[in-house]
């Protein structure tokens, strides 16, 4: 029984180990860039995972490719361009600015400006209205006398 447990423990260790691919980096900087790149690139197969998190075949290949390109001293933008050339803008978790997606980048700012104008317009028209109100309230002396009379009558 103990033997069986030990065998199972060894086997399960192996399978866990197999799922994690190990890369040896020349320096810590490359390692950091590797983690950054695989976190920012999206897995084309699983869609809502990045390359670092995904275990799909294609993500493994792409991680390998990222590693190889880093090892060959290629820059981050070279690597990202390589991925975009093959899988499209889709692989970028932070999309680039282009005419096609400009509405998504600029839309919120446009709405903010529209909102500011609306607020400005409302505030202005309201203050104009209140000015008219106070002008109308001004009474001449005769009217004030009459007002007092009416008020006094009410008191009786």
């Amino acid at each position: 029984m103990l033997k069986l447990l030990m065998i199972m423990a060894v086997l399960s260790f192996n399978s866990v180990h197999a799922a994690i691919d190990t890369y040896e980096f020349k320096d810590a900087d490359k390692q950091a860039r590797f983690h950054e790149l695989t976190a920012d690139l999206r897995c084309p197969k699983c869609q809502n995972q990045n390359l670092a998190d995904s275990n799909s075949e294609i993500a493994q290949d792409l991680r390998q490719k990222v590693y190889e390109m880093l090892d060959a001293d290629q820059s981050d933008s070279d690597i990202v361009d390589f991925m975009v050339a093959r899988y499209g803008e889709f692989v970028l978790y932070e999309p680039r600015f282009s005419l096609q997606n400009s509405i998504l980048w600029l839309g919120p700012f446009a709405l903010l400006i529209v909102g500011l104008f609306v607020v400005l317009f409302l505030v202005r028209s309201r203050s104009k209205n209140s000015k008219i109100d106070s002008a109308e309230v001004e009474l001449d002396t005769q009217q004030q006398k009459r007002l007092k009379q009416v008020l006094n009558k009410g008191k009786k």
Partner: peptide, 12 residues
Amino acid sequence: SGMLGLDLGVYG
């Protein structure tokens, strides 16, 4: 190796 597939943008 799947490298031509990678160049082609194959994802499955």
